[in-house]
Design a protein around this nucleic acid. Structure first.
Lengths: 154, 154
DNA sequence: CAAAATACGACCGAAAAAGTCGGAGTTTTA
DNA sequence: TAAAACTCCGACTTTTTCGGTCGTATTTTG
């Protein structure tokens, strides 16, 4: 629950790897897979999806592989995750159509949508270039819901 | 991916329902289930978990059911979700032991842990009493990671 | 005692996730 | 230029998780 898939995980690792090796030209799926102990074919499929949405460029043949198409400072974790796992929704109520598929009596749709937006914002703010161990933190404004004192029930 | 389970969804709906009917005494699982079109047995099991962790109090027998044990202003969505789905981790790398089970070569563990904390904070800040349609938003400080300009790779 | 409600565990089918296999396309090189 | 080496690409299978159901026992009320 509320967990990234391993594919998204792998994707982020791969993107970070590519970001660290921009000087060395293209990295093959095999290279990246071996570097982190990821099944090669699994990673290949992930990189294919990233290529499809244009986050990386693929190169066939000997010495081929994948390269970033953009500065890693300009690529957010959100983009990578979305490309691999599809649009993320915190709850089954919040679908692409903005509709609650099960019942129209669902009353928590809107507040959860706000939470969803907050999480999206967090993921959009972290970039591939920041994916290092022990990043420092700053205080930054993120949209969240009103404190309890201001909205009451019954 | 990054989605709440339906169980957690149901649990939040039920908690909100209980919060709106504190005056009417206990609500049975059947009542709540019928109100939102949720399978009764499924919801019962969820309410049992909430009872186990002390978020609601259960009452056997005729006119029995469940009641909140606390002011809904003091119950966060995080507590409810955690009770139902267990501790939430944004990635498979971040386990209870803080260890990456698959490989120690994982290099994105720490940044994702920070993201995880940010999301926890968002969920801790939203309370059951706020679970109404169209809540207004405010700007609030949430810990997030450093902007791209300040941390670079390679 | 009978009715109403919770408590608990086992079970099953469907859906999603994780991983595997064979094939197609490029580049290199002899 | 043709074969070999290397890589990407898409379909398929296995495994796990989720969602829901059923059955039985227990507790309380009328």
């Amino acid at each position: 629950m509320l967990k990234l898939t391993k594919k998204a995980d792998y994707g982020l690792m791969a993107m970070k790897h590519l970001a660290e090796h921009v000087d060395r030209g293209a990295c093959s799926a095999k290279d990246v897979a071996e570097a982190y102990g990821i099944p090669q074919e699994a990673l290949a499929k992930i990189l294919q999806r990233l290529a499809k949405v244009g986050l990386v460029r693929s190169q066939h043949g000997t010495h081929g592989g994948y390269t970033l198409t953009r500065d890693p400072k300009m690529i957010s974790a959100f983009e990578v995750i979305k490309a691999i796992d599809g649009p993320l929704f915190i709850t089954s109520c919040v679908t692409v159509r903005g509709e609650c598929d099960q019942t129209d009596r669902c009353t928590i749709r809107e507040p959860l949508r706000k939470v969803n937006e907050s999480i999206e914002q967090v993921l959009k703010n972290i970039k591939i270039s920041q994916m290092k161990e022990e990043p420092e933190v700053v205080h930054q404004k993120v949209e969240t819901v009103k404190p309890a004192e201001l909205v009451t029930i019954s």
